[in-house]
Design a protein around this nucleic acid. Sequence first.
DNA 1: GTGAAAGCGCTAACAG
DNA 2: CTGTTAGCGCTTTCAC
Lengths: 327, 327
Amino acid sequence: MKITDVASLAGVAPMTVSRVINTPDRVSPATAAKVRAAIEQLGYVPNLIAGGLSSRRSRMVAAVVPTIAHPMFAGLIQTFTDSMRVAGYEVMLSLSGYGENDKEALLRTLLGRRPDALLIAGAAHTPGAFQMISEAGIPVVEIWDVSRRPIDMLVGFDHEDVGKAVARFFLTKGYTRFATISADDPRAVQRTHSFAAEIARSGGTIVGEATIAAPSTIMAGRKALRGMLPALTEPTALFCSSDLLAFGAMTEARFHGIPIPERLAVCGFGNFELSSASEPAFTTVNVEGAEAGRIAAGFLLQRLTGNGPKVEGHVHVPFSILERATT
Amino acid sequence: MKITDVASLAGVAPMTVSRVINTPDRVSPATAAKVRAAIEQLGYVPNLIAGGLSSRRSRMVAAVVPTIAHPMFAGLIQTFTDSMRVAGYEVMLSLSGYGENDKEALLRTLLGRRPDALLIAGAAHTPGAFQMISEAGIPVVEIWDVSRRPIDMLVGFDHEDVGKAVARFFLTKGYTRFATISADDPRAVQRTHSFAAEIARSGGTIVGEATIAAPSTIMAGRKALRGMLPALTEPTALFCSSDLLAFGAMTEARFHGIPIPERLAVCGFGNFELSSASEPAFTTVNVEGAEAGRIAAGFLLQRLTGNGPKVEGHVHVPFSILERATT
DNA sequence: GTGAAAGCGCTAACAG
DNA sequence: CTGTTAGCGCTTTCAC
């Protein structure tokens, strides 16, 4: 079933059918109705592959994120997809995982489908990946990470700022002993190191440090806390690189009769539903993923529709510490 | 940068470049090396759009699932994507949400890109959707739900069997009073109704029934349990349509001093990490999503590679009740 | 093992 | 407002 079939049934030229589908304003209502009837009758589904080849616009954008299990990414992808869809672009979602192993191969097949734009998380691109993206000649938004040298546009936040802010938050509350549980992915490590550095700068003591292999799980949090049990004889403030780790740590702490927050204060990261809905609700860092998705879509659309000047998109997404019952 | 550029740099015909990329066996090693050098030098990324139009094979399959927040779907998509990728197919993932509102529009744009195959969750297709899928002329696997009349192939399980199995499980343990908390999506309702029917058939009493709007959340579980507090004066067995609801219910119950499992036995659904890693770990129903993904990919690939007879794929995915500390 | 010609289904560009 | 012509970049098919 192709456009010529519809055209001959409706008694018009193929180009007119194309116009009815893509630019209905430029067709008289009468012929449009005829064409639509033919489309309906034949169950015609336009071949976007052919259309894309001809127009050099795929009406599709590629999005690469490590996971959407994280609420920040889930929210981001949700609003990004919604915003792009409204503007007539479909989002092709690829989950890259946290390993950077075959990202170049992934990019090759992705770019081979000639997306009109690219959203990509994590700025740790290999030189090859960097070059492929640059040479694709499409607008690019990098998210999640504040890179030293963005390829094009950027919507992110500084992970070091987060670690520092949590440290200051704890210090202001008067804590002097601290511990961390962190996944080993680069961003989590950045947050954790920055936290530790700020603590050290202020004369605090780190009494426990645990690192677990990404991705974070509740069980990993439980196990990590079990390992630092001996250090928790005096009041300690714990910063976890994920709410899952924080929840696991709290679960294990309660299991061992450690009072929260009296003996163990806890702050997580991510604002998972778990952080607000479990008992006690725990303090965490919230990053506005949904807002980031909207901003990223806005940047790309501004380029794609070509209105106005070439924007130099570069935005820091706000984050905030949500204080709850564990600090 | 196109295939003719590579061809002229390598001093061969475009067709030879195409062969080096797609069927390297049919090219002499010497010319292949020349061509590969040219590809490398130019940073050539083949245009899969053009290739797809010409060959009528997009090397892409579309997958439609309501969400990947659910571990069953997450596992399914993971193994499905891996299996297809190994066979040379990219997966285009679309999240449809639980509403069936604009599924037809979604399908139209999806099928417009001419995927070579389709994986689709939930069998509640509108007549229009059903027709579009049938007429696409590609292999289709429906998952998650055992439909009355599958479009093509099917990998699923019977939600009514799950409800019944959980009812029998509770009955065998000697419970006589029961309650349910269920999301209002069709599959959850099926499980819950089947559970209630089996309980009624065996003379048990349903002392509480709560329905919440999908998607399930921990908070909704807490709130639902709060509403049935007056009914929980005697030992009761609770079946929740999701582990999130079950965790919420348990959290609220403990908050009100209701002993688990003495006064409230709990069984969830989904085998989220929460069910095994929280304290106490709770009983739940596990569905082998990962296995389902592998099976679905196998079905599709058997059709796509065209080896052997036309399979009539129709499989029930196994589920099991994982008994833990709450029953 | 390699090349030449033709065309996949659609739309840009230009006429009328 | 509608139609015609000429490709988009690749692969199929057939020759050599």
